[in-house]
Design a protein around this nucleic acid. Structure first.
Lengths: 164, 164
DNA sequence: CATAGTACTTGCACTCTGCAATTATCTATG
DNA sequence: CATAGATAATTGCAGAGTGCAAGTACTATG
């Protein structure tokens, strides 16, 4: 049995596989930002995401925050804990239902957020600078569709990731 | 001093920040695949990436593999170690220079790769199915530019991530 | 042939994650 | 109105992943 000892039987080539390409850009772009807020503020990735969420949405509870930045309840709780230790957020018991802890950003949290966001915006600007106006619009609409479909794929799990 | 207790001073809104959008799609799409190869073969993310690389490039050394899938030498070494333990790869000492270990995929490694790649291709197909032919072409060229710029951003580190 | 350099590996401390168990609180029921 | 059952959040702990110093094996150079 002559076995063609060569290349991928399935056509999957990592460097041109869409999910890997997206991952690579996301990872490379995130790294400088991560080391910035890590070294400067001792913030974790989850901490930064939560900080960004509470910067625009005041007095959110943990579940809302988790949904907004794709973190499970454990990670959310730990992230909020980190932010409160750093003095970037405060927890207050909800007024009507005391199980819901309302999380709010503090003044120094907002200062930190603004510094990080400035770098984040600069990075985004560098990426966008490579694209024409029409390319940006196209990317935006394409990403919206991909977000939609990827949420569906994620929700289904691998057993039916191949389906529809 | 009247402080406007509201929204992000910097315009950065997580859900419309390009790097986060890319990250989200990549993460959601990767999860089902990861649980598939994790549960089925006990493969880590690094292991899968390396498997995909040696499936198309035979007898590569660790440095080449690492470059091809964006892993540092430590992670690469451990990933190769995992693959050899699973019987999916073999290391042979290089003929001319014995410091370079030539890594090759085994028959069972290729079988595993084909199964995983089939699911991976199906997932990619689901994403692409949401796009028109012209959108796919646009996304491809846009991603090429973004890959280029993100590599530059990553290489620079955060101290000059803001610069040109 | 000693020295320096290269490719890779290993050990260890540290962080991150996933999950079970817990706490605190609220709701529904008899 | 006690109490059983939900619900929101937290904590403890084990396992996996990560970063870095040090080590091994080999090659190149003066």
């Amino acid at each position: 049995m002559k076995q063609t000892a060569r290349a991928a039987d399935d056509g999957l080539k990592l460097s041109s596989w869409l999910p890997y390409r997206l991952f690579l850009v996301a990872a490379q772009v995130a790294r400088p930002l991560e080391s910035f807020y890590g070294e400067t503020y001792g913030l974790s990735q989850a901490g930064w995401r939560i900080l960004a969420v509470i910067a625009e949405r005041d007095a959110a509870n943990a579940a809302e925050i988790g949904r907004a930045c794709a973190l499970d309840p454990f990670a959310t709780s730990r992230g909020i804990g980190q932010l409160t230790e750093l003095g970037f957020a405060v927890r207050r018991a909800g007024k009507s239902d005391r199980r819901f802890a309302a999380v709010s950003i503090t003044r120094s949290g907002r200062t930190a957020f603004n510094r990080i966001a400035a770098l984040g915006s600069a990075i985004e600007a560098r990426l966008l600078a490579r694209l024409s106006e029409s390319e940006r619009a196209a990317l935006d609409s394409t990403l919206t569709r991909l977000e939609d479909e990827s949420a569906r794929i994620d929700a289904g799990g691998w057993r039916d990731a191949g389906a529809s």
